[in-house]
Design a protein around this nucleic acid. Structure first.
Length: 282
DNA sequence: GCCCAGGGAATCG
DNA sequence: CGATTCCATGGG
């Protein structure tokens, strides 16, 4: 991998396993807009970033070299060796096929707060509607950045009422969001301590929030805490695994978790993303 | 109208 | 324990 600065752009080249479309459209984040073929605007970490891929080049703009190195290199997980992980997972024929389909997926390192709120919103919703509701919350309570809005901080959401969240169309999740805002804003849960905590301890803290179950906790662990062993199980992944490994037979969540641990181990999370992207688009 | 969506809590056996 | 039901809401 190489990158160089040119005006207000950074140009990435000589990389493997990075496709912006697959990375954004595989369901791990919700704040992006497609402008064209492999051209996107993403709103993250309080910034608006354009990304355009053609051939074996990726442009990031507006973006200084320093910003790229301190923020986006990590955000897009560009320092992780995905070829190595893919080699390990490809030993499994099912994964080999899923990887062939979504070979450019990378797991983003997102902001924990936004990730938690977004996946609380996600329960029992379609991806299109999740995007719409997260966008509404940002537009009503977040800071404007050009034509877009940053996802609001905990402080900015502190005084928001359940009725106002209902008005954002959060539905029955409005009271869940209130609960998360309360626990984080009052420091009952300290998100900035997660980095140095064991995975299971973080999971326990997250699941103590009314409205956070295993699925949402696993999404937060995988998409914002760099816990590659987390394996979020939703309706899609359940179907894919059942169809690919159990002849379509119904299996319960406990068996499914055990299966993922045994089969994919420390790379269960990325395996899950390959399977999700493959399953949802076939 | 009915069914389902990147679930989770409450209830029931 | 495991299984079922309810929860808001919009789109197919």
């Amino acid at each position: 991998m190489k990158y160089e600065s040119l005006d207000d752009k950074v140009i990435l080249s000589e990389y493997t396993s990075f496709d912006i479309e697959q990375t954004l459209e595989c369901g791990q984040c919700f704040r992006f807009t497609k402008l064209g073929e492999k051209e996107y605007v993403i709103i993250a970490l309080g910034k608006v970033l354009h990304i355009k891929q053609q051939g074996n080049l990726t442009e990031f703009y507006p973006c200084s070299l320093q910003e790229f190195e301190t923020i986006w290199l990590h955000y897009f997980d560009l320092t992780t060796d995905y070829d190595h992980i893919k080699n390990i997972l490809s030993a499994d024929p099912v994964l080999e096929k899923a990887i062939a389909y979504g070979s450019g997926i990378r797991i983003l390192n997102q902001d924990i707060w936004e990730c938690l709120m977004s996946f609380m919103v996600s329960q029992n919703m379609t991806i299109a509607r999740i995007k719409q509701i997260v966008k509404t919350i940002a537009e009503r309570y977040g800071d404007p950045i050009g034509d877009y809005y940053a996802f609001p901080t905990v402080q900015q959401l502190k005084r928001v009422t359940e009725a106002e969240l209902l008005d954002c169309k959060a539905g029955f999740r409005a009271k869940y969001l209130k609960e998360a805002i309360y626990k984080v804003s009052s420091n009952i849960i300290k998100l900035d301590t997660f980095e140095q905590k064991p995975t299971l301890e973080i999971k326990k803290e997250l699941m103590a929030i009314f409205g956070v179950g295993e699925k949402v906790a696993d999404c937060v662990l995988l998409f914002s805490c760099q816990r590659g062993e987390a394996f979020p199980i939703d309706v899609w992944i359940k179907r894919v695994v059942q169809d690919a490994y159990f002849e379509g037979k119904e299996i319960n969540l406990r068996e499914l978790r055990q299966f993922a641990r045994d089969k994919y181990g420390e790379h269960a999370g990325i395996a899950q993303q390959y399977l999700f992207y493959f399953g949802r688009n076939q």
